[in-house]
Amino acid sequence: MFDSLRPLVKSIVDSHKNTEEKLQEICNLLKEEIPHYDWVGFYFKNGDKRELKLGPYAGAPTDHTIIPFGKGICGQVAESNENFVVPDVNAQDNYIACSITVKAEIVVPLFVNKENIGQIDIDSNTADPFTEADEHFLEFVNFEVSKIL
């Protein structure tokens, strides 16, 4: 499944649309094509503030448009610069619930010139769905996205 999506992600990145439209298209593609991706969004560092700001996303609306560094899974990734896979969100102390239906989450940092400028965040309503293949695919997505930021 991921192999068939890679060229589609590349074609979106290479398209003549603006950056916001490209990011939105990537979110829509991943949410539509990957059964266990129920919410897909990008968060970006909010200027010089130690917080993340919600960018384009696909899925249910969220109240979490600003996330302080260190808070929740996204805020922890902003500080650790490492992928964070959460097989069971209920087992996480520092989890910010977006929806009662969310069972698992994966967050992969997005680097530009070796600086963590944001991340892709995936929520799943399926328990423990994420594998190394998801991590590698999302790293690929972020690498492609980094070319347009």
Rank of each mutant, 00 (worst) to 15 (best):
Leu30Phe: 00
Leu110Val: 04
Ile120Lys: 01
Gln76Val: 03
Thr62Arg: 08
Leu23Tyr: 03
Ser15Phe: 03
Glu82His: 01
Ile96Ser: 03
Asp123Gln: 08
Val85Tyr: 10
Val107Lys: 05
Asp121Gln: 04
His36Met: 10
Leu23Lys: 06
Leu110Met: 13
Thr131Gln: 02
Ser80Leu: 09
Thr65Asp: 14
Trp39Thr: 07
Val89Leu: 11
Ile100Gly: 07
Ser99Ala: 08
Tyr57Gly: 02
Ser11Cys: 13
Lys103Asp: 14
Asp48Arg: 15
Ala78Ser: 06
Ala60Ile: 13
Asp93Pro: 11
Gly41Leu: 01
Ile100Ser: 13
Asp123Glu: 08
Asn46Thr: 13
Asn83Lys: 11
Cys74Met: 09
Asp134Asn: 14
Ala91Met: 13
Glu32Gln: 14
Asn125Ala: 15
Ile66Ala: 08
Phe42Asp: 02
Val77Asp: 05
Val108Gln: 00
Ile12Val: 10
Ile96Val: 13
Asn90Cys: 08
Gly118Lys: 01
Asp14Phe: 09
Lys22Val: 04
Lys17Gln: 13
Asp93Arg: 14
Asn90Tyr: 08
Glu132Asp: 15
Glu79Tyr: 10
Ile73Lys: 04
Gln24Lys: 14
Ile100Leu: 11
Lys114Pro: 02
Pro61Tyr: 10
Lys103Ser: 15
Glu79Pro: 03
Glu132Trp: 00
Ala78Cys: 09
Phe111Gln: 01
Val89Gly: 07
Val112Ser: 11
Gly70Ser: 05
Ser11Pro: 03
Gln76Arg: 09
Gln119Arg: 01
Pro87Val: 04
Asp48Cys: 15
Glu105Phe: 15
Asn125Cys: 15
Gly47Cys: 08
Tyr57His: 11
Asp93Tyr: 10
Val89Tyr: 12
Val107Met: 03
Ile96Lys: 06
Glu32Asn: 05
Asp48Asn: 14
Ile100Asp: 15
Asn113Trp: 06
Phe44Asp: 12
Glu115His: 12
Glu20Gln: 13
Leu54Ala: 12
Cys27Gly: 04
Lys31Arg: 12
Val13Cys: 00
Gly41Trp: 03
His16Glu: 01
Gln24Tyr: 09
Val13Glu: 00
Glu82Tyr: 00
Thr19Gly: 02
Glu33His: 10
Glu115Pro: 10
Thr101His: 10
Ile12Asn: 05
His64Trp: 14
Cys74Val: 02
Leu23His: 02
Phe130Leu: 09
Tyr95Asn: 03
Glu21Gln: 04
His64Asn: 12
Pro56Tyr: 11
